[in-house]
Structure formats: structure tokens, C-alpha cells
Write a protein that binds this DNA or RNA. Structure first.
Lengths: 215, 215
DNA sequence: AATATTAACGGACTAGGGTCCGCTTGTCAA
DNA sequence: TTGACAAGCGGACCCTAGTCCGTTAATATT
């Protein structure tokens, strides 16, 4: 389905039946991304329509939709970049903490705190990505969630192994439940209706996670 | 904004500046609701368009939108009815449990379990209502959430008073966080992607709540 | 260089949500 | 009963997401 991971293939020329993009298509992709980034920066993610982007990039709507199946997928591209550096940062911090002998539960605490601020920072993109949810299971929302889920699940599992959590805890469910308050709908509700500040959200979420530890 | 609570006003005729509906408008409202219910039952909530409903009710789209500002608001009407009976049921059960000396934390446990099944049952309506979220704070999503939030907050506060929870717990945040995994996006993800069954979701959510209790 | 193949292109088109505004009609007061 | 007028009505209209398909042109092969 996806034509994302072609960077390696691009280096290997001469495969006639490969699924790599044609040169003009690749150029258009870059052009579209550049123009979209510009428009998003100028007018805000929510205010830019797909037609706007197509026009700015000087391509037809069909071309735009060939590259990015919907607005969410386009936004996902940008979110993904931020996600990668966040991921790198977190992995580095967690490695360091592990080396320093910091417990995995404290690492989880740090991770959740950072995630709250990440969520706030990228809310507009997260909203668009979430809005693009299809009715199928393999939607793109799963992709940003996937690594987060893996990370939290991993930390919880380590905690179980170290006997910091009870063995019968449902770590897969708990990882999901801890991410739930950060899903755009809920997070925006907390920020805009309840007017919670970020410290409060972070503290609450971390307390929730702390409740999983052995009593 | 809302012209919902007019049932009492309707009985009090003769107020020229009252905001009650005109007789023909009220009749149309009932007609629209009846036809919508029919269509929803036949084709599923998601498959019915506002134009379909207008046509079935024999009114113009403008009329339909005058009664219900968007599809979510129309769906909210039905959800609200289910919510009321759920609410009644819960209040009754909780009163009974209190009389029997059952702890508020066990009442919370029961409540969350029931809420999981309620969420599953009314997912299509919940999705539509959530999809109608505006960018304003006073959106209709707040209304179904409001009573739930009140109830959970109330139980948590009682628990704090009874020294079952630590006094410094952020009950308002926690009520929200416990509802978060039941928001349509998250819930559907858990059901459809993770394929969690309802027992698993209920157990996990209740375990999360249990973690708030004093260790 | 010529040709065949096939991806890429682009804009007309569809669908659904939601708005607007001129016409109609119920309701109240005289 | 009748006239004034706000409320209600309805469908034409707009916007945006997303699709379709005839045309164009890059690439590989000869």
C-alpha cells in the first residue's frame, strides 16, 4: 500500500518493475511538501485546504491526492518528522537513565511528562491526522501511536519483570489507557473546556501511571 | 442557544415573547425525529445523510437544519434519551449499594463496568456526536460528558472524604482520565485494531481506577 | 533515435455538510 | 375578523473532501 520506504530503492536504479517513484513524481512530492509547509506556517494547519495546497504547488488535485491520499496523510508526514526526533531524544534519555540506575517507573514518568508537552506542541497536526481516520483498522493513526505504544508497553513489561508491577497487569491495555487522555479530542477538551494547564495534565497522568505500581 | 427544555413552556400558552416553538415547528421536529429514527434503524446511523432525513420527513434542508444545527446534534437527541435511562439506572443502583454499605470505590467499579457496555452499545451515535465537535468550548460533546464527569467526580470526592483516596488527588482530572479510554476514537481503536473484548477493557479500566486508592 | 509501456497528470465531477434568503404562514392584538 | 410581523419554510447555493478518466510524458527497450 505505502510508497514511503523507497529511499533505499531510489539508490538502486535499473529495476523496471520496482515500485519507486518516477523522477517527476518525486519532484512533485517535494514541491507539494514545501508548499504545504509554507501554507501551514502562514495560515495554520486547519485553515489550509487540499485545493489550496494543490494550487500553491501548481499541480492538479488529482496529482496531490495521488501522493497523499488525504489531508491527514499529508500532515502525518510532518508529524512523523517531529515524532522521529522526539523518539530519538527519548531513547537517548532512557538509555542514560538506565545507565544511571534510574528505575523504569521513573523513566515512564519522564516519558509521559515529555509526551504531554509533545502533544500540546503538535496538536494541530495530531487533529488532522486523527480526523483522517478511516473505517479500516490499518489507518494512519496507528502509525504514530505504534511507537508510543511499544515504548510504554516495553517500560511496563520491564517493570513487571523487575517486580515493580504486579505480574497480572494488562500492560497492553494499560499502555493504551495511559495514551488515551492524550488523544486529540480528549486533550483539547481538557485544555479548552476544563482549562487544565500542562503541569496539571502531566501530574495527573503520571499519578494515574503510578497507581499501577505495587501497593 | 438551546431550545431543548421547552416542554414545560409548551404548557404555558400566551407568552408572546417566549422562545417556545410554533405549533407547526414542533410538529416538524417530531416528524423529523421519527423519520430519522426509522432511517437510522434501517440503514445505520453512519449511512444516513441529512438530505435523506429532510427528504424522508418531507421538509427542506433549511428546515431540518433550523431544528438541529448538525447531524451530531440530531444524534445527540437520541443519545440523550439512552443516557437518561442509563443515568436513572445507575443512580438507583448506587443508592441501593450505598444503603447496603457497599464502598464508593466498589460503586465506581460497577459504574465504569456499566459505562464500558453502554459505550459499546451506542458507539455509532457517540461517533456522530463527537464528529460534530466544533472549535468552541461549549460543544454538545460536553453535554453527554457532563453528567458522567459529575458522577465520577462525585464518587472520587466521597472516596477522598472517606479517606479511601489520598487527599491530594486531582479528582477532576482523574474523572476525565478515566473517561478518556471510552472516547469514540480510543474505544474504536481498542475494539477494532487491538481487538480487545469488552471484559478486557472493563477489567483494565477498573484496575486503572483501583490504582488511585491508597496503597 | 524511435517506440511501447505505463505511471503521472490535472481538472471536471460527485457527494455531503452546512448556509442564505425570499416567500409563506401561524399567532397575537386590535 | 383582520392586519402586522416574527417564525418558519425550502431549496438553490457554497465549500471542501475525494474520485475518475482522458491526456501527457518519463523510462526502458530496440
Amino acid at each position: 500500500m505505502s510508497k514511503k520506504s523507497i529511499s533505499l530503492n531510489n539508490l538502486i536504479q535499473g529495476n523496471p518493475t520496482s515500485n519507486q517513484e518516477r523522477a517527476d513524481a518525486a519532484a512533485n512530492r517535494q514541491l507539494i511538501l514545501a508548499e504545504a509547509e509554507q501554507l501551514f506556517a502562514e495560515q495554520g494547519v486547519g485553515a489550509v485546504t487540499m485545493a489550496d495546497i494543490a494550487k500553491a504547488a501548481g499541480v492538479g488535485k488529482g496529482t496531490l491526492y495521488r501522493r497523499f491520499g488525504n489531508k491527514g496523510e499529508l500532515c502525518y508526514h510532518f508529524l512523523d518528522e517531529h515524532m522521529r526526533s522526539f523518539q530519538e531524544d527519548m531513547l537517548g534519555r532512557m538509555r542514560f537513565m538506565t545507565a544511571e540506575g534510574v528505575s523504569v517507573l521513573e523513566q515512564l514518568d519522564m516519558f509521559l511528562d515529555a509526551l504531554v508537552y509533545f502533544t500540546e506542541e503538535h496538536m494541530p497536526l495530531l487533529c488532522e491526522v486523527q480526523a483522517a481516520r478511516g473505517d479500516d483498522g490499518d489507518d494512519i493513526l496507528a502509525r504514530p501511536h505504534f511507537w508510543l505504544h511499544m515504548t510504554i508497553t516495553g517500560l511496563l513489561q520491564q517493570a513487571v519483570r523487575q517486580n515493580l508491577l504486579e505480574a497480572d497487569i494488562d500492560v497492553v491495555y494499560m499502555a493504551d489507557a495511559l495514551m488515551a487522555p492524550l488523544s486529540p479530542t480528549v486533550f483539547r477538551f481538557q485544555r479548552e473546556v476544563h482549562q487544565f494547564d500542562l503541569e496539571r495534565i502531566s501530574a495527573g497522568l503520571r499519578r494515574l501511571a503510578a497507581g499501577l505500581a505495587r501497593g
